[in-house]
Amino acid sequence: MKVLVGIKRVVDFNIRVRAKTDGSGADIASVKMSINPFDENAVEEAVRLKEAGVATEIVVVTTGAANAQDVLRHALALGADRAILVDTAEPLNSLATAKVLREIVKREAPQLILMGKQAIDDDAAEIGQMLAAFLNIGQGTFASSLKVNDGKITVVREIDGGQETVELNLPAVVTADLRLNEPRYLKLPNLMMAKKKPLETIALADLDVAATSKVTTINVAEPAARAPGKKLNNVQELIDVLRTHAKVV
């Protein structure tokens, strides 16, 4: 079974992102970038499927400029077999990204498509569901566990108030929650080996997908800061706060 994993290069989760002074976007010019954490869970799950003899080949794909190769190499070092960069100078919205992935699925014909449930930059959580609709296949979003069995996949989904289990015909799209697994640490020899694995670049123009979107960002700003708080001296003051300000009793 071939597995395709969609990944995204995002600002590292430890970085506090600021707005550009002109409000045109987030200021990410000189900050550390990493693979989106949820996408790393998706890659890890694919590697575990391969180690279990379920997956035979893992292809990772991302969209972006040449510098997005670093997250593809990261995924290759984790255990993916080959990588595809869909080269675009313009960042793509969810719908265009889902269309790019649809075109890659047509070329690669994977049985399972994995990706993170959302990217930690725009927090949109849209692409997996859109891709599943484009391909007219099932979707297992926010997955905390999965099991492949006889042309089907059973997915445990994290939903409000608990979990839901669904069974999907393959091929299917599954989006990873953090609880799906704990990604392994990268070892230096694996990083060296990853440099030798194939990485193909495809121009966005060759996929016949328009980069433009009718949803545009007109301003990005930092939220108003909270007023400074008050340090209390003892428990009695805290009880008074809860009694008076909070009016909870």
Binding site: K214, T217, I218, V220, P223
Partner: peptide
Amino acid sequence: LYAGGLNATVQNN
């Protein structure tokens, strides 16, 4: 955006 670290104003046409 960024887990509430920033707010984006977006136009949907």
